[in-house]
Design a protein around this nucleic acid. Sequence first.
DNA 1: GAAATGACAGACC
DNA 2: GGGTCTGCCATTT
Length: 111
Amino acid sequence: MSEPNAETRILHAIRAIPRGQVAGYGEVARRAGLPGRARLVARILGQNEDPDLPWHRVLRSDGRIAFPEGSRGWREQSQRLRAEGVRVEKGRVRGLKAARDLDEVLWGPSR
DNA sequence: GAAATGACAGACC
DNA sequence: GGGTCTGCCATTT
């Protein structure tokens, strides 16, 4: 019981994202202690069934939604982000860079 | 057991 | 800003 499973840690990292904030897959994976497992994060999100999981706050490193533009998930995610005050333009999300800056302040400079 | 697939990331042009 | 290529990891066929 040294440490929880990777899936648990990833889910925890995602749930730790503050409202109105966004994070990239690699970012989440790194925070979960699994650098390079961005793909694992994506798989977890695709298999997750937790309605309380802020999956819509997870974006690609480019700051773009991981879904194809016009897709159901794409629309839902963009709408949810907008509802949280996140600026979304054609699948492009503004604030990821700024969020990164705040990241070190909010989550802790220990990195 | 190898090849293909996927809600990815970083480097390069 | 945008397109291409490679690397990585886990699951599925």
